[in-house]
Design a protein around this nucleic acid. Structure first.
Lengths: 335, 335
DNA sequence: CCCATCACCGGAAACGTTTCCAGTGATCGC
DNA sequence: GCGATCACTGGAAACGTTTCCGGTGATGGG
């Protein structure tokens, strides 16, 4: 190494001087000076090879463009960067199989840990995660019984909050626009809606689900058209719960097409509390699932695991919170 | 290495067999089988150390949450992943100094290339980029004379398109809500607006700029309130050009506060053609600066540079394109 | 049948760092 | 003044891979 020669000392001393332990101050000065003159910075690869640390953590999701994941990514980056960790973004692909491949690829040791939010889960994936050679934290479903670190949120309960709020402001005939049921979030939200609208606690008159092909505005628009074209015996819908903010915007579009005012004729709620919903007109009442908090918690957890090795797997839950905005204002049209 | 032992061959043969060159088919089968049994995948660090390739590219921006950068990131990832490259996200920080630090940190060799979109640029940064030990591609300003690879867009011309469109639909008194002037985009857009509204080609009656503190909805709202509270001698504003989509949404909010209809009383244009603008009500006429295309081009360029070493620096320009939507529909209110 | 060519394999070096281990010089206490 | 302790330094090994180089066996041509 050039710095050692230049400073006239051994490689060992150079390393100690730069790393800061067990070197005399004279030595430190000398090496620092030489390093500064040469514009030297230690090679990350050599260092990684020796230390068995890459100082990198991967974050993997199906779709990096999704605002929810962007928020997580930002939060994760904010936690990890000050600790000297870099963030590698990866794609899980849309199938369970490709996610399993991703987890297996951790064997090549290019990261010290993984934070992953799989759209779909199965036993093979759980097994792969448990076998993984580096710590893996799952954002999404709680995997308690499986002994896997996870950061989850109770989106089913979140749906309950939305329904309760709508009932409280006097809505009685509530539609639900959900996304695909074969995704983890889709399934959970359906459970939440069904639980909230069945049973004796539900004070409304009617509840009905329509499924969109996708969690997008366009799919929400199409689904809402179908839903709103029907009129239940109890009377026309006066509220729609959407499984995410983009779907909710699609619902509002459909309402406008049909000449319904929001929130006058139709109150609409979203989920995820995204920027896009906050700035929309009308601004969107939405259930926050704490994307940023989940990212932060996952990042902290993975940091813990990278240092301390084996503790019992931890399941962190972030409570959903309802943010009431214009799209569910109290006043109702007389109809 | 365990695989070599298991297969009963040398490390060298193992490597050749897995890498695929100069090994007999019998050897390949044997090694593959052993590798499969052991679930072996080659260590990325050891490989990197030897090959002097990390198979990683960094993407650095000030704010990963910005939709424009998210689009770029997605595009970059899509180009790089099939070539076996990983994407590391980094933050430039908000000052030139921290960006320079970032570029210098490339010396530790943790990536094979960098794609960076600096908010602000100065000579020190240009110098640092030129000295960088790995290829650097700049997204943003064209740095032709500096001999630096860059992918740029002519946002000044884009502003011209917006103004021309507004004039064409009969608007005459045009306001401009810009962001901070000390950023590269802010300065370029100001130049564009000034060029488009001065000189004999401008068929409007009045042009005036108001500056927002930031490229956000809130800042746009505040700036638009200030702008619209003034009434030029030529008459009230009938159009506002905003320097990006978020500012434009702020402008629409301000207009609504003041009882102005959009586009009836006031036509509004944005810039960046973001999802948020597309789904807004009214949907936003916006100048696309081709974020995804720029990301794609930058990623391709960095791939070229990683393989072929030295070619003359390249400057790629992506032309801006205007997408006309509801916020600048033709009909005007009679006033 | 012998020599030259060729395909293939194993040994070993190299990449750049950290850390263990031993050794040297100095300092301190007795 | 001498021995022991101590702070510090240098040598060397190790991390896991790729690739150069030399060698060996087979094959083909003369």
């Amino acid at each position: 190494m050039q710095v050692a020669e230049r400073a006239g000392v051994s490689l060992a001393s150079t390393s100690r001087a730069l790393h800061g332990t067990g070197a005399s101050s004279k030595m430190v000065d000398r090496v620092r000076a030489a390093a500064a003159e040469l514009g030297y910075s230690p090679d990350a690869i050599g260092r990684s090879l020796r230390m068995k640390r890459t100082f990198q953590v991967a974050f993997a999701v199906a779709d990096i463009g999704n605002p929810v994941y962007v928020e997580m990514l930002t939060a994760i980056h904010e936690v990890l960067a000050p600790h000297g960790y870099r963030v590698v973004v990866m794609s899980t692909g849309h199938t369970v199989g490709s996610t399993v491949d991703l987890v297996r690829s951790l064997g090549s040791g290019f990261v010290d840990g993984l934070i992953v939010s799989p759209l779909r889960t199965d036993d093979a994936l759980v097994e792969a995660i448990r076998q993984a050679p580096v710590p893996v934290v799952v954002i999404g479903r709680s995997l308690e019984q499986q002994g896997i670190d996870s950061v989850s949120t109770d989106s089913a309960a979140g749906l309950g909050h939305a329904v309760a709020h709508l009932v409280e402001i006097g809505r009685r005939r509530i539609g639900f626009v959900n996304g695909p049921l074969d995704t983890t979030p889709g399934a959970a939200r359906q459970r939440g809606f069904d639980a909230a609208t069945s049973g004796p606690d539900f004070a409304g008159d009617h509840a009905e689900t329509e499924r969109a092909d996708d969690f997008t505005v366009a799919a929400g628009l199409a689904a809402a058209r179908r839903l709103l074209s029907r009129t239940p015996a109890a009377g026309p819908f006066d509220a729609v719960v959407a499984a995410n903010d983009l779907l909710a915007i699609g619902v509002i579009r459909a309402a406008r097409e049909l000449g319904l005012s929001v929130p006058g004729d139709l109150a609409v709620t979203g989920m995820d509390d995204t920027e896009i919903g906050r700035v929309f007109q009308p601004s969107l009442t939405s259930v926050s699932l704490g994307s940023a908090e989940r990212g932060t918690a996952a990042a902290r957890l993975v940091l813990d695991r990278v240092d301390d090795v084996a503790e019992p797997a931890q399941q962190i839950a972030i409570g959903p919170r309802l943010f009431v905005r214009e799209s569910t204002a109290k006043e109702m049209s007389a109809r």
